[in-house]
Amino acid sequence: MLEFFLSFLILTGAIFTFIGSLGLVRLKDMYTRLHGPTKATTLGVGSLLIASAIYFSAQGPSISLHEFLITIFLLITAPVSAHLLAKTALHLNLTSLAEKPEKDAIDQGGPDEVDTAEETEKADTTDTAVKPEAAEALQAPDQTKS
């Protein structure tokens, strides 16, 4: 029973690590590529380390706590490094798959009304994606909103 559980944890961790690196290879964009390996860190290596902790606690004379040190360290540092990488990519102005925000939407909102500006921008892009002619007709309710 313990062996079955350990095998399940190990295979889960290995599959998540594999999928994380697959995302690193397959995804098109730096910002989307950032998404894959962070999940591989937390879920993949996390479950591998939990499996190792259970194994050495069952085998050895006492409870093994080294793994939780590594787990906690990885759980703390993974978001920090991902945030720094995203900041670097933004600083270097890397090409993104997402569309650039329109200048009008930013100018209308101002610094205090960022949320409403984003909402109108989203509405504008979806409208133009569906029907470019209907965008003008639909701008009146947007203006009343903001």
Binding site: G20, S21, L24, M30, R33, L34, P37, A40, S81, L85, T88, A89, L92, L94
Partner: peptide, 11 residues
């Protein structure tokens, strides 16, 4: 780009 390589080293 350089951030891709840093991300690869991280992975």
């Amino acid at each position: 780009d350089a951030p891709d390589r840093i991300l690869a080293l991280d992975t």
